[in-house]
Simulated assay, not measured.
Amino acid sequence: MSGPNILLTRIDNRLIHGQVGVTWVNHLGANLVVVANDKVSEDEVQKSLMDMVLPDVIQARYFSLKKTIDVIHKASPRQKIFLVVKDVHDALALKEGGVPIDHINVGNMHYEEGKKQISSTVSVDEKDIEAFKRLDELNVELDLRRVPDEKGQNIMNLL
């Protein structure tokens, strides 16, 4: 049996918003958005707000990291999955947990105190850099781009 049909994994601390819910979903041809994040999986208000952004024909699931690791391999081949995580640490946990991630779109990591800005939409600290290095060691392609038609950059060249 083949693995789940994950079209793309995106790191975006905003999770589902207009750019993700419309632009990326349409570009990828996804019919299911899986948000993997422990806090969001239990936040009904945030889930319903994100659902409002998605077109009616697109389904969304909100799973904890553990549940994502446990159920992703049970996905139907008909499910064209766009996997969205809040940060690089969630992405690394999924990869190390056996989720078949070979390509990550790094879309948005907000600036916070103690982080350095490496692009207009991505800021990192030492823990983030270590997680990106680990993903790189695991042969995950790390492509920084905001929208599909933008030319991507390998984030490892910016760290």
Rank of each mutant, 00 (worst) to 15 (best):
S2A: 15
G3Y: 12
I6W: 07
L7I: 04
L8I: 11
L8A: 09
T9F: 06
I11Y: 04
I11C: 03
D12H: 04
N13F: 03
R14C: 13
I16N: 09
G18N: 10
G18V: 09
Q19P: 00
Q19N: 05
Q19E: 12
Q19V: 01
T23D: 13
W24Q: 06
W24M: 06
V25C: 01
V25K: 02
V25Y: 01
N26I: 02
N26F: 00
N26D: 14
G29F: 05
G29I: 04
L32Y: 11
V33K: 01
V33G: 02
A36F: 11
A36S: 15
N37C: 06
D38E: 08
D38Q: 04
V40Q: 04
V40E: 12
V40T: 15
V40D: 02
V40Y: 02
S41T: 03
S41W: 04
S41Q: 02
S41V: 02
S41K: 02
E42T: 14
E42C: 07
D43R: 08
E44N: 13
V45K: 09
Q46F: 02
K47Q: 15
S48Q: 12
S48H: 03
M50V: 07
D51V: 09
V53W: 00
V53N: 01
L54H: 05
L54S: 06
L54M: 06
Q59F: 05
F63S: 02
S64I: 06
S64A: 08
K67S: 07
K67F: 02
K67N: 10
T68R: 09
I69V: 13
I72H: 03
A75F: 00
A75R: 00
R78S: 14
K80F: 00
K80S: 03
F82W: 05
V84Q: 06
V85K: 08
V85T: 11
K86H: 15
V88A: 07
H89I: 11
D90A: 13
A91L: 05
A93M: 07
A93H: 04
L94T: 03
K95H: 04
K95V: 08
K95Q: 08
K95L: 01
G97A: 09
G98P: 13
G98C: 13
G98I: 12
G98N: 12
V99W: 08
V99F: 07
P100L: 03
P100G: 01
I101P: 13
D102F: 11
D102S: 15
H103Q: 11
I104P: 03
I104E: 05
N105F: 05
N105Q: 08
N105L: 04
N105M: 03
N105R: 05
N105Y: 04
V106F: 10
M109N: 11
M109C: 10
Y111H: 14
E112I: 03
E112G: 04
E112M: 13
G114C: 07
G114N: 12
G114E: 12
G114V: 08
K116V: 14
T121D: 13
T121K: 15
T121G: 01
S123M: 10
S123Q: 10
I129V: 15
E130L: 14
A131H: 09
A131F: 08
A131N: 09
F132E: 02
K133M: 06
R134I: 10
R134E: 14
L135G: 04
L135H: 05
D136W: 13
E141A: 14
L142F: 13
L142P: 11
L142A: 11
D143E: 14
L144W: 10
R145H: 15
D149P: 00
E150A: 14
K151F: 10
M156F: 06
N157T: 11
N157V: 00
L158N: 00
L158K: 08
